[in-house]
Amino acid sequence: MNIFRLLGDLSHLLAIIILLLKIWRTRSCAGVSGKSQILFALVFTTRYLDLFTNFISMYNSAMKLIYLVCSYATVFLMYFKFKATYDSNHDTFRMEFLVVPVGGLAFLVNHDFTPLEILWTFSIYLEAVAILPQLFMISKTGEAETITSHYLFALGSYRALYIVNWVFRFYTEGFFDLIAIVAGCVQTILYCDFFYLYITKVLKGKQLTLPA
């Protein structure tokens, strides 16, 4: 564990909590992509099956459980409790366009051809693209609520911090996981355009709107 990893995990947790609180406090999930949230729940479910097979630390198990519970809670709030506020007309990205190719790739490119390892690989690839329905939704409506953009910024920061963590681990421990690194870089690149808009608009007190 290094400081970048820890900050990355906390940033990830912050993102998840910002989103849950936003939905809970405003009693509305307008502007949030339910598709992205379902994909994240699927990511955590397929990745954290190792909760049952190997123990790393209390921190590791506790964080996994928190991520899992929070992601299912978000999906529950969006599709059941506050379903009436869910903006499904603008959430039109087709999940199968991500899940099917990612599943195929996980079968072809993995560290070991075993069920748990393939599911882990699937979760890594899927996480890289799971935010696309949300970004697609923002590009369709042309704007995002400020709180939604804070959520995305925290989520993007988590990815960027993980890259720094990998560089650090490579030099200090000689550790690297090529699958995680390539997928993590792809994921971080997807946020670049958003980061630019966040810094030029949201941090100056304006709402996030896309240039016409």
Binding site: I56, K64, H111, F175
Partner: peptide
């Protein structure tokens, strides 16, 4: 590809 290790990252 690198050797398989327990996944200590989240």
């Amino acid at each position: 590809l690198p050797i398989l290790k327990p996944k200590d990252e989240l």
